[in-house]
Design a protein around this nucleic acid. Structure first.
Length: 262
DNA sequence: ATGGTAGGTCTCCTA
């Protein structure tokens, strides 16, 4: 049975409960992976989600920062989390659907402003986090798995509004792009979004700081859906719901979708 | 070269 999955950095699930409900009501993905919930798990407002059929949730949370959750219409089993780079942050959760598919939901550290691991601890932590992701997937090769989330890296030239201008901007530096590629290779992950939409500019994030985000369109593709090769051919119908960036009290990220015939 | 906006929360940190 095909299922549709979406990933969305929500930037406070409590403040943006109304637009989460809007997305669930209008788009009805089977599974919605959220990042930056900025909430302890017991304070996530689950009642409205359940009323729309999302009766299953697995999550990790902390006060004020980070936080990841998976809402599902179908049963999903919590199969644990990883604390890469030993940050003590709620940045990962894994679940297994009733069809056996494993879903990894990640919120990779943003990395601060200065792209220098010696001068910026946050950048070092981001690279360490990706290193440990790579080593983990290399040691325990994933199968029948999907990896989604805000990876905070836009790897391709057409994943950013201006490749040359962003070469020294955290999220598009060569060292980050290389680290992301190593992580992807370690799990033999296939970029489903780019498998479906191989050509042209594609963004999932637009800064709050732009005067007119839509007209300026200075976006980056920071949010990703990957799958292992044994199920990558089942993936299709990828899209980014740009409209959501213009909703009332929006997140600075738009949701990314893919459907899997499994 | 700079500062622009947003959310959470203990007055500034993070994105």
């Amino acid at each position: 049975m095909p299922f549709t999955l979406a990933t969305w950095n929500i930037n406070s699930v409590r403040l943006r409960e109304p637009i989460v409900l809007k997305l669930l009501a209008e788009e009805a993905p089977d599974v919605l992976c959220l990042q930056e919930c900025k909430s302890p798990v017991d304070k996530i407002p689950t009642e409205g989600f359940a009323a729309l059929g999302y009766t299953h949730m697995i999550a990790r949370g902390q006060k004020g920062y980070n936080g990841v959750a998976i809402l599902s219409k179908r049963p999903i089993t919590d199969i644990g989390d990883q604390d890469f780079a030993s940050l003590g942050h709620a940045r990962h959760i894994a679940g297994q659907l009733d069809n056996g598919v494993v879903i990894h939901n990640f919120y990779v550290p943003a990395g601060g402003d200065v792209p220098d691991r010696d001068k910026n601890e946050k950048f070092r932590q981001k690279l360490d986090y990706l290193n440990e992701m790579r080593d983990w997937f290399h040691g325990d090769r994933p199968q029948k798995s999907i990896l989604v989330g805000d990876l905070n890296i836009a790897p391709r030239e057409d994943d950013v509004w201006d490749h040359k201008k962003l070469l020294k901007v955290v999220s598009h530096t060569p060292v980050e792009v290389e680290q992301l590629a190593e992580t992807q290779d370690a799990g033999s992950w296939v970029d489903i979004t780019r498998q479906d939409i191989p050509d042209g500019r594609l963004y999932s994030w637009w800064s709050y700081r732009a005067r007119d985000w839509d007209a300026a369109d200075k976006g980056r593709r920071l949010d990703h859906i990957w799958a292992t090769p044994d199920i990558s051919n089942a993936g299709h119908s990828s899209r980014i719901l740009r409209d959501a960036r213009g909703w009332e009290k929006p997140s600075d990220h738009a949701p990314v979708f893919a459907t899997f015939d499994l």
